[in-house]
Each structure stands twice: as C-alpha cells, then as structure tokens.
Design a protein around this nucleic acid. Structure first.
Lengths: 192, 192
DNA sequence: GGGATAAGTGCAATATAATGCACTTGTTAT
DNA sequence: ATAACAAGTGCATTATATTGCACTTATCCC
C-alpha cells in the first residue's frame, strides 16, 4: 500500500468507481464478480493501492471494460484537446497554384487538412510514425496515390475515400486536367 | 510471478523491449534509470511478471513514454482498424433534398461523414457518449450550430471548422438560401 | 585464447500486495 | 427504533512481487 500520488492510480480509482456505480454494483458484488477481495477494491477505489496489472484487469473485465479504458485519464474538455473550441479559420500554405490548408490545429490526436493539387501537380512524403493512419476523402477531381512499398497505385474519384498507414513512403499526383480537392485526416494511435 | 497469459502483460513486455532497444539501453542501464532491479526487468520483458502499476509506470517514465503507450496493444493494420484499405464509395442516405453520406465505415475509432443540408433544413441530435468529439468542416454555404446546454450558437462559413464534445444535445440548421455542405468527423476517446 | 558486455536462470531473502475478519459510520426503509 | 445494506477502517495473516547475488550462455573485440 503506497500513497495515491501516481496519476495512473488516480485514473484507475476514478474510472472504476464511476463505472461500478453506473452499472449499479456494490463494492461487494463487484469484488465477487472480479474474483478479488472487497478489501482490495476499497483500497483501489480510495487510490491507496499500488495494484498489480492482473488485479486491475480482473476488475476491467468484470465491468465489461478494456484495460485501457480503466487506466486512461478522464475525457478531456474541448480546449484541452488542442482542438478549436471556437471557430477556426484554416491556415493556408499556397504554393504554385496548389493549396494546403490545415483545418484543425496540427499536432494533436486528429489532424484535418484540406488540399488542392493543381492539374499535373505532385507531392511526395516520407514514412512517418508507426500507428498513424491517413484518411483521404475526395471532394473534386481525381487523385493518384502511390504506395511503392506495397506496390499499389490507386486513383480516387470525387466521393471516394481511402485509408492507409503512414509508416510508409507515399506520394500524391493529380493526373487530371483540372484542379483536384480532397480532405486528409491524420489519426494518431487509433486504439480501443 | 504468474504465467504470461494476460494480454496486457504481453503488450507491456513487447512495448518495453522495443522501446528500450530503440533507445539503445541495456537492461541493466534501464533498470538503473527506472529505479528497479534488473531481475524484475528481465521478468517483465519475458512476460513472466504480474507487475504493479507503479513498476510499469517507472519504466514508462524512464523511457519517456506515457503509461498508456506502454500498455496499449501494438498498432493495427489498416484492415483490422475497420477502415477501408481499398477505395470506399460512400454510403448515401438521402432524405428530402438533404444528403447524409458516410465516408468511412461507421462505428470505428474515427467516423467521417459528408453532409448536405437543403436551404432552411434542420437536424437535431441527442447527447452521445462522454469522450466522443465531433469536428465540423464547412465546404460550402453556411451552417448554424446550436449547443443549448452551453447556451452557444455558432454560424460557420465555408472554410471554417469547429469542434465540440458529443456528450450534449446539439442541432444543425442551414440558415442560408442555398444548400450547405460540410464534413463531420467523429473521434472516439481521443487520448494520448 | 582471454576479457568484456548483454541477456537469461535459480534461489533465498525481503517488501508489499492481497486476503479475511471484526468493527464503525451513514443511509434508507419499515 | 430496528433492521438491512453499502461503504470505510484497523490489523494480523498469507500470497506474491521485488530484490540481490551467483551463475550460465552468447556475442563481440583485441
């Protein structure tokens, strides 16, 4: 039994207590379901126990939650997310007729961009971090996407979308005769 | 010491070992930095230890990782994400001149929708789960967003975006004389 | 070969997580 | 008031996480 100074412990205790009460269990009932002693559950909910992974996992299962849900900090308010609480006017980066516009403030869990590529224009990107994914959604025109490491080539038309992992090299090309437009969502660590 | 059957333990051992090697630490060095014994680290990396929250947290800190990063399962492939690996043609749900199109397969970590609301049209939604957030991005026309619980009203123009939490009632309204179009991203549990 | 570093094993000692029980407190219902 | 249930406390006991040390194995370098 250690003091409850660890942030993770505080998350665990708060999440467990909230979930237990929402599901209408008493401490005794939940302890029974999880196969641990009520004394232990009291300590954990009080944030006074440095529980083991297995014990926390038993409680998560008994409540129908994943381990990650029990451990994670409580949901954040909009402003703490780094996402615009108020209206956000996109930042534009214009270069030779093409347009790269950040719809959201970059660098957070979700990025959202609006791109326009001039006819015949191309863009090449290096591999990024494992666990990041990109979602393309075509608004106008057409776009050719090359994934050389997968030996794939896709041509997207307006209204179509495509997702791929960002831990690989990729490049865009506008094969059409008119400008194309698409949104580009980047999702970091999309896990349950 | 228990058998390493617990999925969480396997994630911990794999993530720790990978991070340690990437940062060029020996087991001895990392144990020293984290303030635990090398014997314990050996057990954890072997998946043979039911470690306590505090011990895992010490290791995470020593490696400059968050607790969640150490505990989470390895990144998933595209298809496991439920996101379309190949091109996905949106599903349309047309009703009285307005258009609701799911750009991605719904129900996953990230949903992406394209909406069109006819002039004067409205849409009302009840409160959803805590921890979900919505990102609106205006493509054309204008949209009025009402958040009665926050006593807020926003009017969005093309090119603007706005984020709000989905654990509250909200409604859309197209106040203009022409159809408006926007994308709507729904993000579940956006945490580090 | 010999020496050095990194990783894995076995085992006894120690610290502490986890249990079980008795008890108090507060609330709700009859 | 009494009964009944849920939650919190103190403490001795038990189980086990964590430590420390000695030892093996493998690899790399001189």
């Amino acid at each position: 039994m250690s003091n409850g100074s660890l942030e993770v412990m505080q998350n665990v205790s708060a999440n467990l207590r909230l979930a237990r009460q929402q599901q209408g269990y008493s401490q005794e009932r939940l302890a029974e379901l999880a196969g641990i002693s009520r004394r232990m559950l009291v300590n954990i909910e009080a944030g006074e126990s440095n529980a083991s992974i297995a014990t926390v996992d038993k409680l998560a299962s008994a409540l129908g939650m994943s381990f990650a849900e029990v451990v994670r900090p409580p949901p954040l308010a909009d402003k703490e997310l780094g996402l615009p609480l108020r209206i956000w006017q996109g930042v534009q980066d214009d270069s030779h007729g093409s347009l790269l516009e950040s719809v959201l403030k970059p660098g957070m869990t979700l990025e959202l961009w609006r791109w326009q590529l001039a006819a015949g224009d191309s863009y090449h990107a290096e591999a990024d971090a494992l666990g990041c994914h990109e979602v393309l959604y075509m608004l106008d025109g057409q776009l050719e996407l090359l994934l050389p490491q997968q030996q794939q080539r896709h041509v997207l038309q307006a209204g179509q979308s495509l997702t791929f992992a960002l831990d690989q090299v990729y490049s865009y090309h506008n094969p059409g005769l008119v400008v194309c437009a698409f949104t580009k969502s980047i999702l970091m660590y999309p896990h349950a």
